[in-house]
Every structure is written in C-alpha cells, then in structure tokens.
Design a protein around this nucleic acid. Structure first.
Lengths: 140, 140
DNA sequence: CTCATTCTTGTTGCAGCGCAACATTTATTT
DNA sequence: AAATAAATGTTGCGCTGCAACAAGAATGAG
C-alpha cells in the first residue's frame, strides 16, 4: 500500500479515494475479484459505484502496475511485487480454491522469448497464466 | 478436417453438421473468432443459430482438442496440431492484426513445470498466451 | 486570485459474452 | 418397437466492458 503511494507519487499520479479503495479490496483478497464483486464490496461502505467507475479505477491501477487482470477469470488481482514493466509475471491459478500465486518468471520468460523469436514474433507482455491445483488444495 | 473425423471416430464422438460447420469456420479463419462472429458466419447459409448452440458446439470441439479458447480475446481458434492433452500450447497473438500462431511448447513447458513445482503447484493445462507483434506486422 | 486547462467522477445506455432451465427432436441400445 | 441417451431448439437472463456526454475537482498560468 505504501508502495502504491510511492509509485503514484513518483509518476505524479493521483491515488484518489476510489482508486485506493479498489486497491485495498484487492489487497485484502487472496483470490482475484471481478468488477461486480468490487462494486459490492465498495457498496457496503457508501454508495454503490457504477461499473464504469470500477473499470476506470482498475485501468489506472493496471497502468501503474499495481493490479493485473486474470484473463481466464475476467477478474483482477493486486500485484505484490513491483515488476519492471518488461519483467514477466507467471500466475499460478488454483482451479479449486481460486487463489492466485505468483512464480518467479525469469527463467520461464527466457524460454518463451526464445520460442517466440524463433517464430519471428516479438513478445510484448509476458503475462502467463497457469491453471492447476495449489499445494493447499492438493493436500486436502 | 480429416483429422477431426478421425479423432471423433476414435472416441465414438459424433461430428454433427453444426459442430462440423463451426470447425470449418474456425479452420477457414486465420484469426480467432468470437461466438457471435460464428453465429453470423453460420447464419449466412441457413438459419441463425442461437448463441447456446454455438457454445455447445465449441464445448464439444474443445473437449476433443480440436479448438482452443483464447482467453485474452474471448474468442476461439481451430487447433492444427494434434496435441497430447498434456502437451502445452503456446499461442502467439498479434495485437495488430489479431492473427494467432503456435510455437513449439516443449522447452517452455519444462521451465514452467519446474517453476510451478517450486511453488508447490501442480500445473494442469499449460495453455500460454503471449501477445506481441507478428513478423508480418513488424515488417509493415 | 482568477481563469483556463486538465484530470477525475457521475449518469445513461448499450452491445457482446456465456450459460441455465426446460422442451423437443434425433440417434442409439436392448 | 420401446427405452435410453444424446443433441438441438427456445426462452431468458446475469455478467462483462465500455462509449458518450455531463459535471465536479484539482492543477497551472497569468
């Protein structure tokens, strides 16, 4: 959270109350949240924000690398590390409990980059989503 | 297409006219198609199928490994190779022209598997989507 | 300090996505 | 030929995501 403030300050970006509350809700959740789940969470303390309000806050947070979108779930998650924009992110999505972890992505990124370049492809955003079963659910 | 028939025959699965036409439409397209694009394409020759009809056909084709869903686009694409269900698939999605290519995934899969296991995670469906710029668009 | 500019938020509305639930038809089995 | 299973049709609806415009709040220039 303090990191979020630092990032925004560094870029002269404004972490407004709405944006802050969206980020707080995502930080408080171990699983990714959909836009309408965020509406409900924020709506419990005050007026229900319109969908577009949430999407705009999410756009802002994503532009600043504080939030990632989980494509396979149409949901969003706060990003703990402060990634370089060029660094890859590997998400490990548990298909049972829905929790999302992050794996160190450097070695994975290298092989992906080489595979992509072998096909004449210039990769841009190495955001990799791997579904499976997390250690906790596997034990159960 | 012949391969599709072979796969269905092997599993005692029925490649009905609707399923066949959906697959043909996807095979004829170099870019992934959304469900509603498929409706329009099939609607030009006969009655417009309902959305659910398309989704059911797509479910069938996906279950049989003939079609993949591109999560980041909410669209579907025919799968050329006959993957093992355990083999990974790496899609190279051009953000300019929308075309989708496949990269050889074996080396990528190994690094992903090891990275995932290091986190105590059991990966299941290594379907990896990489966005970027394809060689054709890069030249232009 | 005031005005213009920019950024942010509110309001309204809509199109695409995806499927649930049930009814009907078609194919397969006994 | 009847029972069972599979596929398709029909209706309907909730979620996703954003466009377009209006209004309010913050910043910078003069």
């Amino acid at each position: 959270m303090a990191q979020a403030e630092a990032i925004c300050a560094a870029g002269a970006q404004r972490l407004t109350p709405i944006r802050r509350r969206v980020l707080e809700a995502l930080l408080a959740s171990h699983a990714p949240l959909g836009a309408y789940e965020l509406i409900e969470k924020l709506g419990k303390r005050g007026a229900r924000p319109a969908p577009i309000t949430i999407y705009r806050a999410l756009d802002f947070l994503r532009d600043n690398g504080l939030v990632h979108r989980i494509e396979s779930r149409n949901a969003f998650i706060a990003c703990g590390h402060n990634h370089n924009s060029t660094d890859p992110v590997v998400f490990l999505i548990c298909e049972r409990c829905g929790s999302v972890g992050e794996a160190a992505g450097s070695p994975v990124a290298d092989t992906i980059r080489s595979a992509a370049r072998a096909a004449g492809f210039t990769p841009k955003t190495p955001v990799i989503e791997i579904t499976g079963v997390c250690s906790h659910c596997r034990a159960a």
